[in-house]
C-alpha cells in the first residue's frame, strides 16, 4: 500500500508542483492519473520513486516512510519499481536484450554487470518478459531499428524484468498512434491482472482512462480534485477536473473494438 500523507513539493524555482496530497493506493490497483499538462501528474508519479523528492510530508510504502531512506536504501527500493516513459528512454545503439537486462542492474553486482555476466536466470527472465509483450524475436536487434510501439514494449519488458511490485508509467502512449496506444494499454492491463502489479499511469486521453482504469485520480494545479472508481466517471467529471469543456484532442478514438 502506498500512502501520501500531506505531501507537498516545491521546486527550487519556487513553483509548487504538489500541494498537500493525501492519497492511499492499494496493492494491485490500476490507477490512472489525469489532468491538464502542468497539473502535477508527472511530479506526482515521479515523487513515488523520488526521481523528484517531495519537500514536505510523508510517503509511506509498506508502512515505511520512504522519504527518510539513505541513498543505498533508496536504490534497493527503486529496483522494485518499474518505470515507463513517454519517450521509451532506451539506449538506442544497444540491443533490445541488453536494454531489457538493464532492468536487472539493481539486482546484479556492479562488477558482474559491467562484465555482462548476467546469470542465465536473468537472461531467461528478460526473454520471457519480451515474450509477454510479444517481441521476443527482436531480442538481438538494435533498439533504434524498432517502431515506436515496439520500443515502448521493450521498455515495458525492461520494467517487468525488474519483477516489480509497482509500475509507474508517465504518459506511456502520448507518442503513439491510436491502435498502438490501445495495444500498449492492454499489455499494461494484462500485466496488472496476471501479476497483481500495482499500476499508476499518467494519461491525457479521457477515453483511454475510462476504458482501462480501476480508479481515476484528477489533478489540477498540484491538488487532488477528484478521486473515485472509473465506473463512476463521466465526461462531466473530466470537465470539472480540466476546468474546461472536453475537446477532440482529449480523445484517442476507439479503434480497438471496431
Amino acid at each position: 500500500m502506498i500512502e501520501f500523507r500531506n505531501v507537498s513539493l516545491t521546486y527550487p524555482n519556487g513553483h509548487q508542483g504538489l500541494k498537500n496530497i493525501n492519497l492511499s493506493i492499494n496493492d494491485g490497483e490500476f490507477v490512472v492519473i489525469v489532468g491538464l499538462s502542468g497539473a502535477g501528474k508527472s511530479t506526482l508519479i515521479r515523487s513515488i520513486n523520488q526521481m523528484v523528492k517531495p519537500t514536505a510530508g510523508e510517503l509511506l510504502i509498506g508502512g515505511e516512510n520512504t522519504l527518510k531512506y539513505s541513498d543505498r536504501k533508496l536504490r534497493q527500493f527503486r529496483r522494485n519499481i518499474g518505470m515507463i516513459f513517454q519517450n521509451y528512454n532506451l539506449v538506442k545503439r544497444s540491443s533490445v536484450l541488453r536494454n531489457v537486462l538493464a532492468g536487472r542492474l539493481g539486482h546484479t553486482g556492479t562488477l558482474r554487470s559491467i562484465l555482462s555476466l548476467f546469470s542465465q536466470a536473468d537472461v531467461r527472465l528478460a526473454l520471457e518478459s519480451l515474450e509477454r509483450v510479444g517481441i521476443a524475436d527482436k531480442a538481438y536487434q538494435r533498439a533504434d531499428q524498432l517502431s515506436g510501439g515496439q520500443q515502448q514494449r521493450v521498455s515495458i519488458a525492461r520494467a517487468l524484468t525488474q519483477q516489480p511490485k509497482l509500475i509507474l508509467a508517465d504518459e506511456p502512449v502520448a507518442s503513439l498512434d491510436p491502435p498502438t496506444s490501445h495495444a500498449v494499454m492492454k499489455d499494461l492491463k494484462r500485466i496488472n491482472q496476471e501479476d497483481n502489479i500495482t499500476m499508476i499511469v499518467n494519461l491525457h486521453a479521457i477515453d483511454l482512462s475510462m476504458q482501462y482504469a480501476d480508479r481515476i485520480i484528477g489533478l489540477r494545479n498540484g491538488e487532488v480534485v477528484f478521486d473515485g472508481p472509473a465506473a463512476s466517471v463521466s465526461e462531466k467529471t473530466f470537465e470539472d477536473i480540466y476546468g474546461r469543456p472536453i475537446k477532440e484532442d482529449d480523445l484517442v478514438g476507439d479503434v480497438s473494438n471496431g
Binding site: L97, R98, L101, S116, Q120, V123, R124, L127, E128, Y140
Partner: peptide, 12 residues
Amino acid sequence: MDKQKRIPIIPL
C-alpha cells in the same frame, strides 16, 4: 525455449 542451452546476451 530450450532450458538446457545457454542463451547468449550478445550473439556469437
